[in-house]
Design a protein around this nucleic acid. Structure first.
Length: 848
RNA sequence: GCCUGGGUGGCGAAAUUGGUAUACGCACUAGACUCAAAAUCUAGCGGGCUUAACGCCCAUGUCGGUUCGACUCCGACCCUAGGCACCA
């Protein structure tokens, strides 16, 4: 049903505020962007990463959402049923910090921020279906975080295990790696120890292969750099386990439940290697200080050996700068291992460069063909024996005994000094030697991953409670589905008295409960879930936001999902985007969805950055590290620049020389730009055009407001010519044969159709700066068409109308308010593009 | 150290994928309108020669190669931004 609002007279001047208010109100009143499932129409799911409700929108948001909105509009004009929702990632640290610092309720703080930011989004005129808004901190949402947790518990994908955390015994606090820097507590200076804490994990490793292999399904739509980072993060490597017998160890493993229990034979050490072909070059076995073989034999080691091992363990607790290279350190334990291929006896060393968390916590050291082993062997004078040769040097290398290698040769080659295997290529030797090891029972092919299971326990208040109950009688008991949600207490006094234990532990009403199984008194788990859980599935909730029984209806979600286009910052390339892919595979296995991958196309936008000015106060504890920075807002700084605009000198108001840098915009650095202010001065449409036009989306955008006037000028130019031609053009022109057009009119029509083609292609390839340029060109072409309304022929008017209509329709994704208003004017009724059901202009090749 | 992007005017950037390099915008210069200013409009705007006019030469980080033709493809190097970092 079409709504008719009657025709307004057009202002001669472009008043952004007036138009924006008018259309925002109308969109709201008519539910212009509200959509329902419609099997007769093709769907398009346009999604942008949901914001954390910090209190204010920043320019990064404006950029992200302007891009998403442009695409949503484009797809609407192309006839798609477009789902374009937004919500809030509203659990997390800042709300809790605010609560501690200012004594506010985190819920109130969060809701207030959401209300303010929602208004800011609406002022930008973003085309969301607001009925579908979700917020992670509301019980009707996190109920299903808990639901999923219980499902995963049932499936064996959620489990609890002891893990080491940094612990300050003086403060009784868990410390993050950053807070345990230097091995000392950041607050009291007490030495940091490791403490075993029970934490909940989700078994992401169970999906490691799928996470890697299913990348083939999304390769076309995801940036290669994102996929690569995920590949690195998962870090699959193919190789082999090999058992080295231990000659003088008569002690077995004491702890069979230890995760390293794969080292089943107490008389051997199992190593992981990707280069079994180099095994004849092994000069030692090097194990991590925490390795069971070390613990089992510790009492038998010499004092010096034990001191070194203790030191290595202690050093690992220190959090070192990633830039600083750690010197290799180790000690010979006196244990002897037997190389199962050669029968050679090798010393067993403890080395600080071997990680207990990866592989088996033990490696065979082959210095000739591994850089790290080379460095280690050099330092301790261990023999270095070359067993892989470059093909053209084989003869030379096989006749010589030892070679003075300058550095490790880690490429593939041909085997030498390897008995039976001499002359084989690395590739063949790897395969055959693994088979040989399997046949003789001392090895097997193996695949290892860097990916760890996802620890989701947080000793925090502001998150979804983990729905687990501890009962004296029944042990660990999952909550019943019908008891969900397990709600956070409405009132909670938060302070930082005992940081490191969950604040919920202090609330007896929360903690004390009854066992879901036996009904006896029991206690609740007081840890909450990592906030990354919330963002794993929020965009499925949008499809069915009010469902009280299920996270979403599989049937409704089957229409809308997977997401056709996702847009966000590439800082989430690994964490969020791996977790949500994992979650989707779990949902598939539960039967909620029927696909492997949730996002078909991913666009990662560049950051919005700005100049910052600061005074750096050196930190005496870390002479080489970065000092503390005190930021000065740019408006308070006097800046001297060279001809190219580079900063020569910057001075604060009181004359202090300041350093400067280009950094991510933020309030604390004083270089943020308030979107409200921009909208107030220039209007939402101009702000949106500018932010898209300023640079390609994937580039970093160095904020500089100088160009925004250009966006305003462009909109004004468009406005002025529509005003001039409005009455001439608003009567529907009749079709005209091609010969009646003047040469200039034909030129204009050509430009119009070339532009239609170009902009369509730009949208399909996710370019947003070039279509704005194309619109400007078309607008310039209309100005170059020197005809006045009074003297224009029908053909001229037809050409003008065609160009104007195309321009206005293609402007809508960038400047929707202005486009709606201008379309209403030329359509001759006061309905805009949407209400008139207008479509993206049709490209006619014969005219272009 | 390894991996991945990127180097084009004063600035942000284009270039139909090997075919007129610098579109579009910002900044700047001159002119028109104005008592004046703003706004708007017109013209100019990579560098160097040159003409009355036409024009010519050099320029896409550097050096080389392929091609009738290279910002685009190939090789080496330089610079820069980001990611990873003892993963055996």
């Amino acid at each position: 049903m079409a709504l008719d609002f009657g025709l307004n007279f057009m202002d001669e001047k472009y008043f952004a505020k007036k138009i924006e208010d008018k259309w925002q109100t109308r969109w709201r009143e008519t539910g212009a962007f509200e959509v329902e499932r419609d099997d007769a129409k093709p769907k398009f799911y346009q999604l942008e990463m949901l914001p954390y409700p910090s209190g204010n929108l920043h320019m990064g948001h404006v950029r992200n959402y302007s891009v998403g909105d442009a695409l949503a509009w484009y797809k609407r004009l192309k006839g798609f049923n477009v789902l374009h929702p937004i919500g809030w990632d509203s659990f997390g640290q800042p709300a809790e910090d605010a609560a501690i610092k200012r004594g506010v309720n985190p819920r109130d703080w969060t809701e207030q921020n959401i209300n303010h930011m929602r208004k800011q989004l609406q002022n930008l005129g973003l085309s969301y279906d607001w009925r579908r808004e979700m917020a992670a901190h509301r019980p009707d949402y996190y109920k299903f975080d808990q639901w999923f947790f219980l499902k995963m518990y049932e499936m064996g994908l959620a489990y609890k295990k002891k893990t080491q955390v940094n612990w300050c015994d003086n403060d009784k606090a868990v410390l993050s790696n950053e807070q345990a820097s230097g091995g000392l507590c950041w607050r009291c200076g007490h030495p940091v120890t490791k403490k075993d804490l029970e934490q909940w994990f989700l078994k992401t490793t169970a999906y490691a292969d799928q996470l890697l292999d299913d990348m083939a399904e999304i390769e076309a739509g995801w940036a290669e750099k994102v996929l690569k980072r995920q590949r690195d993060w998962i870090g699959r490597s193919e190789g082999a386990f090999v058992e080295f017998g231990i000659r003088n160890s008569d002690l077995g493993l004491k702890d069979k439940t230890n995760p390293q229990s794969q080292i089943a034979n107490p008389k051997s050490v199992r190593v992981f290697t990707t280069r079994i072909d180099t095994i004849y070059g092994a000069n030692a076995i090097v194990v991590a200080a925490e390795h069971p073989i070390v613990e089992a034999n510790f009492a038998h080691f010499s004092d010096e050996t034990r001191i070194v091992i203790e030191k290595i363990k202690a050093d690992k607790l220190k959090v070192t700068d990633h830039e600083a290279e750690v010197e290799k350190e180790g000690v010979d334990t006196g244990l002897k291992a037997i190389n199962p291929f050669s029968g050679e006896e090798l010393p067993v060393w403890v080395g600080n460069y071997v990680m207990i968390e990866y592989g088996t916590g033990a490696v065979m050291s082959v210095p000739a063909h591994d850089e790290r082993d080379f460095e280690f062997a050099k330092k301790y004078g261990l023999p270095i024996r070359q067993v892989i040769s470059e093909p053209h040097l084989v003869h030379e290398h096989s006749t010589m005994q030892a070679l003075a290698l300058e550095q490790a040769f880690s490429d593939y080659g041909v085997l030498v000094h390897s008995d039976y295997w001499n002359g084989k290529t690395s590739e063949n030797a790897k395969k055959e030697m693994t088979e040989y090891a399997v046949k003789h029972g001392f090895g097997e092919a193996a695949t290892t991953y860097r990916l760890r299971d996802w620890g989701i326990s947080r000793q925090r208040f502001w998150g979804a409670p983990i729905p687990i109950v501890y009962c004296e009688k029944c042990g660990v008991v999952p909550e019943k589905f019908e008891n969900l949600p397990i709600e956070l207490p409405a009132q909670m006094v938060l302070n930082d008295e005992i940081e490191g234990t969950s604040p919920l532990a202090k609330d007896e009403d929360f903690v004390n409960t009854v066992c879901p199984d036996c009904g006896e008194p029991a206690t609740r788990e007081t840890d909450t879930m990592d906030t990354f859980v919330d963002s794993c599935w929020y965009y499925f909730r949008y499809t069915d936001p009010k469902n009280p029984e299920m996270p979403f209806s599989p049937e409704i979600a089957a229409y809308w999902t997977p997401v056709d286009q996702y847009i966000g910052g590439d800082d989430h390339a690994v964490m969020h985007l791996i977790y949500t892919r994992f979650w989707t595979k779990v949902m598939r296995d539960i039967g909620l969805v029927k696909f492997d991958e949730p996002v078909k196309r991913l666009l990662t936008q560049g950051m919005v950055v700005g100049e910052t000015f600061f005074d750096e106060i050196p930190n005496p504890d870390e002479p080489e590290g970065k000092g503390k920075r005190i930021y000065f807002p740019p408006s308070s700084v006097t800046v001297e620049r060279d001809a190219k605009g580079k900063i020569i000198a910057a001075k604060s108001a009181d004359g202090k020389m300041l350093k400067s840098a280009i950094e991510r915009m933020s309030k604390s650095k004083g270089n943020g730009v308030d979107p409200d202010e921009m909208v107030e001065i220039y209007g939402a449409d101009a702000a949106r055009i500018f932010v898209l036009f300023a640079a390609p989306v994937e580039n970093e955008l160095v904020w500089n407001e100088a160009g925004i006037e250009g966006a305003t000028r462009f909109l004004q130019r468009v406005w002025r010519f529509v005003y001039k031609w409005q009455s001439a053009v608003s009567r529907q022109p009749s079709p005209i044969s091609n010969e009646e057009f003047s040469a200039d009119a034909r030129k204009l029509r050509q430009k119009t159709h070339q532009t239609i083609k170009r902009i369509g292609e730009n949208f399909e390839s996710l370019q947003f700066n070039t279509p704005v340029a194309a619109l400007m060109e078309l607008s310039n072409a209309i100005y170059d068409f020197k005809v006045e309304p009074e003297s224009a022929s029908d053909a001229d008017i037809f050409a003008i109308r065609e160009a104007a209509e195309a321009l206005i329709l293609m402007l809508a994704p960038f400047a929707p308010h202005t486009a709606e208003e201008l379309y209403a004017q030329i359509a001759g009724n006061d309905r805009g593009i949407l209400a008139n059901g207008a479509r993206f202009p049709e490209y006619r090749e014969e005219l272009a």
